[in-house]
């Protein structure tokens, strides 16, 4: 469709001023006397609840005794595109060394798709800011501590 001809002719100044000011006055009245609340989210005081599908930090799934379900099959290490996971252990038992590097992880979710024991999931923790003195590589015990807390 070719755009209509009246869109190319400028309107004169008087109509323009009245039309623009009416639009702005209408939205001001709607805000003050209507039922629209302010849309600003006052961050440190209010929080926004993301859905369950949010791609946060990867977390380990623990059973009732506090042990992880991982059996050292090494598949998540092979598929990770940036090689941020490191694993050492015998197949079938709990790993001795399993660490995650937060400076390399791109939060893609491939490790969750591939794990056959469902031992690693993408959690809901998206607040990962840190000072420069904080260490960004989590070893096994620290990772288990952060996984249980929501």
């Amino acid at each position: 469709m070719i755009l209509k001809k009246y869109l190319y002719s400028p309107r004169n100044m008087f109509t323009g001023v009245i039309s623009s000011s009416l639009t702005i006055v209408k939205s001001l009245i709607r805000r003050k006397y209507g039922f629209e609340k302010s849309i600003t989210l006052n961050y440190p005081i209010e929080q926004y609840h993301y859905s369950d599908r949010l791609m946060g930090m990867p977390e380990l799934v623990l059973n009732e005794k506090g042990k992880s379900l991982c059996t050292s099959c090494d598949l998540c290490v092979q598929i990770c595109p940036t090689k941020c996971l490191e694993l050492k252990g015998e197949v079938g038992k709990e790993p001795k060394l399993f660490s995650l590097s937060l400076s390399d992880c791109i939060f893609c979710g491939h490790c969750e798709v591939v794990c056959p024991d469902k031992a690693i999931t993408m959690g809901n923790n998206h607040m990962l800011t840190g000072h420069k003195e904080e260490v960004l590589r989590l070893d096994f015990s620290e990772w288990k501590k952060l996984s249980s807390r929501q």
Binding site: I106, H126, H131, L136
Partner: peptide, 26 residues
């Protein structure tokens, strides 16, 4: 030299605001 690191791809806006509050503390 860097003062605050914000990981995430992309980081959520709340964590960027938290980073600015950390700079305030420093």
């Amino acid at each position: 030299p860097v003062d605050v690191n914000i990981p995430g791809s992309p980081p959520s806006p709340e964590s960027i605001i938290q980073g600015i509050l950390f700079i305030r503390e420093r």
